[in-house]
Simulated assay, not measured.
Amino acid sequence: MSPLLEARDLVRIYQTRRGLLGRPSNVRAVDGVSLKVRRGETLGVVGESGSGKSSLGRMLLGIDTAQGGAVYTNGKAMPVFGSPEWRSLRARIQMIYQDPLAALDRRISVAEQLREPLDIHRIDGSESRMARVHEVMLSVGLRLDQADKFPHELSGGQRQRVVIARALMTEPELLVCDEPVSALDVSIQAQVVNLLADLQHDRGLGMVFISHDLKVVRNLCDRVAVMYLGRIVEEGPADTIFSDPQHPYTQALVSSVPQPGRALKSRIILQGEPPNPGNRPPGCAFHPRCHKAEDICRHTVPETRSAGVECRAACHFAGHASLRELA
């Protein structure tokens, strides 16, 4: 059976320029990314800011066109952005944005914004659309008296529930969630994460969950893909990634998550900032910050290789060392 969503060797390049007279440079925001999302599965995409996570999410939806590679849904190539076929597909693939207040129209009531996807895609008769609005509001924990509210009259958690409800209106097969809880406080984060987990379980949704919060990813995701400077450096089942990471970058990220019984000395502190993506280091892009870097890392780009059951990592030494040895 074809995966619900598949990306093959995706590339996205942006051209930047420093000042009016500066030379243009190419930034490979997404550089040869391949991944799959199965039905009913949640794939977490993690990495530091600037690693290309949000660009990848937009490419998976077809909003940003791939300059290399392709995206497939149910085995079929993603239609051209803006075409009737693409608009029809968007009813089945929806996005949940990071900033709910920016994602919502402040001039339109909650009910109108929830009904809008049904009007655009001509789903259900006009008489039953409001009933559908009320049904979805209740399913995400909103009260019916909030239907006439405007976004600024709601709390941050309530606004994010509206964004989730709007994404669910067309009964999609896949949700792409771009940092959906980063703007919320911890208690509200837990409520929204639990809501997403319940919806995913009840509806059998596929989900791509983009985040830099590893605690949330560990609790929610079935599989995890770790990005660094536009590339996936490690991918595998969430339990394996967090218990026995193979790539030094993943080891550093996982070591930063507090866990009972783990000594503080096992924490791996990354030195310096990520390199300029417009001037990628030769060899392994992570080698300037890597605690295991050797000469081969400085001049040879590592191939993605098997690093255990259903795991792969782009490291010359994957499989030779684990976080357990550092604890």
Rank of each mutant, 00 (worst) to 15 (best):
I108N: 03
E310P: 05
D213M: 02
R231P: 00
G319C: 01
E48L: 04
G62W: 07
G75W: 04
F81C: 11
V254A: 02
V254M: 07
G50F: 00
V110A: 12
K149M: 12
P282H: 07
G68F: 03
S266W: 00
V181W: 03
D119Q: 13
R17V: 00
S25K: 11
H247Q: 09
S266M: 07
R90D: 06
S83F: 02
V11M: 01
N194K: 08
D148C: 01
V233I: 10
G204W: 06
P151K: 01
H287C: 01
G308L: 01
L270H: 09
G75E: 04
M227G: 05
I13G: 04
M95F: 07
C177Y: 03
R280M: 15
Q160R: 07
T170E: 10
V224K: 09
D185K: 15
S55N: 13
R305L: 06
L168Y: 10
M59D: 04
R289N: 12
R280G: 02
H299C: 09
Y72L: 15
R267Q: 09
R90W: 00
M227T: 01
K53C: 11
G82W: 00
R8L: 07
I269K: 12
S256F: 03
E116F: 02
R38A: 12
L20S: 08
K53I: 09
S139A: 14
R38E: 15
R18D: 11
L89R: 06
E41T: 05
A167Y: 11
G272M: 06
D64R: 00
Y228R: 05
K76E: 13
N279M: 03
A66D: 03
R161L: 08
S322H: 11
G204S: 05
R115N: 09
K292E: 13
E303K: 14
L214P: 04
M227S: 05
V217H: 05
A77I: 15
C311R: 15
R298L: 14
D148K: 11
Q15I: 09
